[in-house]
């Protein structure tokens, strides 16, 4: 397992994507705290931009927005072996299924943890920089940055596990992204039901990002509280974790249970009739039928239509 983790990390550390994701989040976060371009109003009045509350809020938003990054990192470690066709080689080694899966998962998750240092460090550097608006700042405290990062980890783990399962079981990256889209739909769908209090409470549980839970617990906080208190861990936030962390573990368990080293999967659904080709050694000389050619606009339209349908059938 350790070897697989090591390999996964080595592999990722050589990939530019890892650093691009990190840099992207870092830059966005820094941009956000140092300019007025992004105006996010959280509560009325003078909540400090560098209060734990604010930083946690932004970090959780980055996690939710960064869901695509999470899916790209956590969805691929198993898919990779099928895409590059290395599965046969890896699966015939002595590595066990749990070693393989857990190694790839943990390795990828470490990479996710690294990438999502991006927003925190971005905000930290942004706020320390001389051109940051330091109005309403509370005293700079490193804990104000570490704590929000820790608060983001459960959501990263939850989302990561779900994407990992999607990739491991479908063996296709397309399905990973479909899951991503479904999560957004779930979040937005739930969000539109949050008009009254009871629904809000319930909505927090249907939101895999944990954003609603955070909002719910902090909705009546005063500015003073927001500037001084650490983000909530009890109440609905705890409830959210109690619901979603087991779901994440279940996803990992399901991945383990249903994944197997068979490289050929015989579909139980598609029972297509095989076309029986008659093999023969006959090489009868055959006259190819004559066809007429046209390379005009009509043919170009036809080509577009054909490309569309081929692409549709193959993806």
């Amino acid at each position: 397992m350790l070897e697989t983790i090591k390999f996964e990390l080595q592999y990722r550390l050589k990939r530019p994507a890892t650093y691009i994701y990190f840099a992207l989040l870092f830059a966005l976060a820094m941009f956000m705290v140092t300019t007025d371009v992004v105006q996010v109003s959280i509560g009325s009045g003078k909540v400090a931009p560098n209060a734990m509350f604010t930083l946690t809020f932004f970090h959780l938003v980055f996690v939710a927005l960064g869901m695509l990054i999470i899916s790209a990192v956590m969805g691929v470690p198993i898919v990779r072996d099928f895409e590059h066709n290395t599965s046969s080689i890896i699966f015939t080694t002595s590595t066990k299924k749990w070693q393989y899966l857990s190694g790839r998962f943990i390795g990828s998750f470490i990479v996710v943890l690294f990438i999502f240092l991006g927003p925190i460090l971005g905000m930290l550097f942004g706020q320390l920089s001389p051109w940051a608006e330091k109005e309403h700042f509370v005293a700079v405290n490193l804990m104000n940055y570490i704590y929000p990062y820790l608060q983001g980890i459960p959501a990263l783990f939850i989302l990561g596990s779900i994407f990992f399962m999607g990739g491991a079981l479908s063996r296709k990256i397309t399905y990973v992204y479909v899951i991503g889209v479904l999560m957004i739909v779930l979040y937005l769908g739930v969000d539109s039901f949050t008009s009254d209090i009871e629904n809000k409470k319930l909505a927090s549980l249907f939101d895999p990002f944990g954003l609603n839970a955070f909002f719910y617990e902090t909705q009546y906080w005063t500015t003073a509280e927001k500037n001084s208190l650490p983000p909530p861990t009890g109440g609905i936030v705890a409830f959210y974790r109690m619901v979603w962390l087991p779901i994440a573990c279940l996803c990992l368990f399901i991945s383990y249970f249903f994944f197997n080293f068979n490289v050929v999967r015989d579909s139980k659904w598609k029972k297509k009739k095989a076309v029986v080709n008659k093999v023969s050694n006959q090489s009868a000389p055959m006259q190819l039928p004559q066809a007429s050619f046209s390379f005009g606009f009509g043919n170009q339209l036809k080509s577009i239509q054909n490309m569309t349908s081929i692409y549709f059938k193959t993806s």
Binding site: R15, H84, N85, T86, S88, T92
Partner: peptide, 13 residues
């Protein structure tokens, strides 16, 4: 020891 018919490699390694 198995050499598959169509196997791939990780291209960037």
């Amino acid at each position: 020891g198995y050499l598959p018919q169509e196997f791939g490699v990780y291209p960037k390694i």
